[in-house]
Design a protein around this nucleic acid. Structure first.
Length: 886
RNA sequence: GGGCCCGUGGCGGAAUUGGUAUACGCAACGGACUUAAAAUCCGUGGCCGCAAGGCAUGUGGGUUCGACUCCCACCGGGCCCACCA
């Protein structure tokens, strides 16, 4: 039987001990100053039926290592865990197995808890939260009502209570209904009939973010478009701030880039085009387009509307369009075409609206009007001015349908026509007013022109859409609104929160697109809190993202039933000092939660002192892949179950391997052989302590000494003494491991500890004489144990106690190193001749340049390569090398 | 098409940020111990060469006493976004 350290006996024992002693419990309101706090956050998991994936712990262990170190450095550490438990997979699982989603969730949470606890991660379990707990989602609902009861003040650029919204006299004069509408149209949460992304398989409406690439994020089915009244949240009002405030936080550059890209800010202008038809002449409606290139307006030779553009409908109705059938056929085709199909087939299609002409305001020329699905209804105004000479897509379209091409002369360089490189044809148009201007100047000039002539205005456009907040599903937070025929949308009063989910037999979604809750009549039917009349509950539920948009605040005060969190506690803990999660959440969760927090901050619900950004620092881990570098999946049969690893190797081996596997932000393939190496490392640590500190043979005259050193007369000369250079290694390792943990370079921290243990084992080697046994100074062994502790908490705790200590190593002080001792007395001086290494020599660390130079030039090898020539140049790098060139 | 990133042994990867390329680990090979195996320990591992030495960080150039690192071009790969006007 292999000699191995008994992790089975050790790990469970210490986990129970830490639990009992609340070793990792965060102080509630510590008396220390705020600079002493550290709030580490991992994305709380979705407790799926699959159980923990080996990828989850990569993040948990990494922050565990970091927070353990912070704790040892004397910080007040908050490192919490909870469950993001609402969601579709659980609901579908429940439907399939005919059980209640709440029961399935309970079971899954229990399993995840067992798995995570078996890894010995230092979470503060007393702060565990669960988004499906009514005590939690009461506050999610409460916050939704804050959105409902707020509007966005465009002048001040922030959200305010709806009572502060000034109602214009003209509206007041029209009556109560008008006032109500005026308010409803400006609420941060509002109901609107829009085209939504509809997944026919999941039978659910999806946010744009969940339907990327035209496929349902959950099931991969092609997404259809459907008209539906939905609750929306006005995240677009925060677009500007969501970009701007990225300057104030420390996020990975690529994360910032993705957020900025997703929000998609672009500066440009609106331009109004008047429209004439054969039937009615000049119409009252104008078509407004958005362009980032107003300077190319002179080259707009036709106009394209999205097939869904409302004016198309109007003109059809009024009989202004002469080719009605053709248009309707195209519209129908575009409607049925899923986003996915649109993406697969990017060849341009389109139909001209016969009988309709637009007028280019810059030239007063009449231009044709088309509809085409390359113009998106959801971006800009859903209509474009087409400038084929200056836009590739327009060019392609113009070529296909034989539309005119006009290049705009703006004379960037010497009055040349400035079209796109691929444009060879078309007439040149010289406006006269853009002569000699650079593109940026021409844009400004034309924007001025538009504003002066009242045919357009500067504007900023965003790709970001408002947040579709309704889900027609059962397993989510009910939206706490009551529909009253008389009073309109009425919020459920605070004291009636939470609106809990009714327990029912059927959770199946409906084909009509209504929530399953709609069928539960005695839940739906209620009374209006305002007028007391009969009324109905909103039956839509909230998306998954709701509960996860504020959970980091709840951790600060998880059991409060008077408020979502005590402001004093928020002031102490917020913002999160380090938030780690997957790259897959950079555009969704990260954006939503930043927005949610900013909104709460605007209303003063989050104290001003916390700052307007929830996460001071954001980092991302990469994926754990299967063996061979392919993605782990059930179908490939290459899924590694953490339970198996823990039972075979123990939690510490699993943890250290996770940290050693590669750079934290790079994908890494799981390697069953690699984990063996880590196992050997920890066994070596175990043996090192047995040999170095174990009972000496009965006849040995040695006692455990904290100061034993080579040359100590009480000790035989060990084969390898614990000399100054080994002392230097220890100090270097303490320094490196500390810095590597802070910089999240866990893999090199582990390798540094391996090097140290190899060196220490040489000194206290198994075969060494009893003299060698105690040659390692005890305090050095202890220092090593302390830097190992964050990575391998169980084995280090066990060894710590074996040394005779009665309290936890995880509450010990992080060891300091002596900078003076990091430098060995000698170093290997490298001598280069013409850039090539020709000799190496051991010299004193504090050698003077003159001395080093003399030594180098005296070297036989060096002389050989100098070939008797005089050195032209000699460069000396202190403590490293000397470079001679001839 | 846009954005971000990466190319180093048989493999995962190091390299003090411009200073001894290949640390650490895996795999491999040779040896010790063992009846044997496991475990452990010792040793060898970029390529060519007996050696001296030469050549090596995707390719080609450049800057420099010195380049995996910086600059230019190219080749190859990955991730995210994408008819966004």
């Amino acid at each position: 039987m292999a000699q191995t350290y008994p992790f089975q006996d050790i790990e469970g024992k210490w986990q129970a001990d830490w639990d009992k002693n609340q070793t990792y419990k965060a102080e509630d309101l510590p008396a220390k100053e705020k600079s002493k706090k550290f709030y580490g956050l991992i994305e709380f998991p979705y407790p799926s039926g699959e159980g923990l994936h080996v990828g989850h712990p990569r993040s948990y262990v990494a922050l565990d290592v970091m927070t353990r170190k912070k704790r040892m450095e004397g910080k007040d550490v908050l490192y919490p865990i909870g469950w993001d438990a609402f969601g579709l997979p659980t609901e579908n699982f429940a439907i399939k197995n005919k059980i209640k989603p709440a029961d399935a969730t309970k079971k899954n949470i229990a399993n995840f808890t067992r798995q995570i606890k078996s890894l010995g991660i230092g979470f503060d379990w007393s702060r565990e939260i669960d988004t499906t707990d009514p005590k939690y989602y009461r506050w999610t609902q409460w916050m939704f009502l804050k959105f409902f009861n707020s509007y966005f003040d465009d002048v001040e650029g922030r959200a305010k209570p709806i009572e502060e919204l000034a109602i214009p006299d003209s509206v007041l004069a029209t009556g109560d209904d008008a006032v109500r509408n005026y308010r409803d149209e400006r609420r941060m949460a509002f109901k609107s009939t829009t085209k939504i992304n509809w997944c026919p398989r999941c039978k659910i409406g999806l946010a744009n973010e969940e339907a990327q690439g035209g496929a349902c994020e959950r099931c991969g089915e092609g997404v259809e478009q459907k008209q539906k009244a939905q609750w929306m949240i006005r995240i677009t009002k925060y677009a500007e701030r969501l970009i701007r405030d990225l300057d104030t936080v420390d996020y990975l550059e690529k994360i910032k880039a993705q957020q900025i890209n997703w929000i998609g800010r672009s500066e440009g202008a609106f331009v109004d085009f008047t429209v004439k038809t054969e039937k009615s002449g000049l119409l009252p409606d104008k078509v407004t387009v958005f362009t980032t290139r107003p300077d190319t307006l002179f080259g707009a030779t036709y106009m394209v509307l999205a097939p869904e553009h409302p004016l198309v409908e109007t003109w059809l109705k009024e009989g202004d369009v002469t080719n009605v059938d053709e248009i309707q056929t195209y519209q129908e085709g575009a409607r049925l075409k899923s986003e996915l199909q649109r993406q697969e087939n990017k060849e341009k299609t389109g139909v001209e609206l016969k009988g309709v002409r637009a007028v280019n305001p810059s030239t007063n020329q009449e231009i044709p009007v088309w509809i085409a699905d390359y113009v998106l209804a959801g971006y800009g105004t859903g209509a474009i001015m087409a400038v084929p000479a200056h836009d590739e897509r327009d060019f392609e379209f113009a070529k296909l349908f034989g539309l005119p091409i006009t290049q705009v002369v703006a004379a960037e360089e010497g009055n040349e026509v400035r079209g796109l490189p691929f444009v060879e044809e078309g007439v040149a148009f010289n406006s006269g007013i853009l002569d000699g201007l650079k593109t940026s100047e021409a844009k400004e000039k034309m924007a001025d022109w538009l504003e002066q002539n009242n045919v357009g205005a500067r504007t900023v456009n965003f790709k970001l859409r408002d947040w579709v907040f309704s889900r027609q599903r059962y397993w989510g937070e009910p939206i706490p609104i009551i529909h009253c025929a008389k009073c309109g949308y009425v919020p459920v009063p605070d004291e009636q929160l939470p609106v809990t989910l009714p327990e029912v037999e059927k959770y199946e979604p409906t084909d009509t697109g209504e929530s399953p809750l709609a069928a539960i009549r005695d839940w739906v039917e209620t009374t209006c809190p305002q007028c007391g009349g009969a009324a109905e509950r909103e039956t839509d539920t909230m998306p998954n993202w709701a509960g996860s948009s504020w959970y980091f605040m709840r951790y600060c005060d998880p059991h409060n039933d008077q408020a979502f969190a005590d402001p004093e506690k928020l002031k102490f803990w917020m913002p999160v000092d380090l938030y780690n999660g997957g790259m897959e959440h950079t555009t969704l969760h990260l954006l939503y939660s930043r927005f949610w927090y900013k909104f709460m901050w605007d209303l003063g619900l989050v104290p001003k002192e916390c700052g307007s950004e929830p996460y001071a620092k954001r980092r991302s881990h990469a994926l754990i892949l299967g063996e061979g570098g392919v993605k782990m999946s059930k179908s490939k049969g290459n899924v590694v179950n953490p339970d198996d690893v823990v039972s075979q190797y123990g939690a510490d081996v699993f943890r250290v391997y996770q940290m050693f596997i590669g750079p934290f932000d790079a994908d890494a393939p799981w390697d069953t052989h690699g984990i063996e190496g880590v196992k050997r490392f920890l066994e070596k640590v175990w043996r090192l302590f047995e040999v170095s500190t174990g009972p000496a043979p009965a006849n040995a005259p040695f006692v455990l000494s904290s100061s034993a050193k080579a040359g100590d007369p009480s000790v035989d000369s060990p084969v390898k003494p614990w000399n100054d250079s080994r002392e230097a290694l220890l100090n270097q390792t303490i320094k490196k491991v500390g810095e590597d943990i802070d910089g999240m370079r866990f893999n090199t921290a582990v390798s540094a500890m391996m090097i140290l243990v190899n060196e220490m084992s040489d000194v206290g080697a198994t075969h060494a004489s009893p003299a060698a046994r105690h040659a390692l100074p005890l305090q050095d062994l202890e220092s090593f144990l302390k830097i190992l502790a964050p990575f391998a908490p169980h084995i280090s705790e066990e060894l710590w106690h074996k040394l005779g200590y009665k309290t936890s190593i995880h509450r010990e002080a992080w060891p300091s190193y002596d900078p003076a001792k990091c430098v060995a007395a000698t170093f290997e001086l490298v001598v280069q001749v013409n850039g090539k290494v020709r000799d190496k020599m051991m010299v004193a660390t504090d050698i003077a340049e003159e001395e080093a130079r003399k030594l180098a030039l005296a070297s036989e090898k060096v002389k050989q390569f100098l070939e008797g020539k005089e050195p032209q140049k000699v460069v000396y790098v202190k403590g490293r090398l000397i470079s001679i060139s001839v």
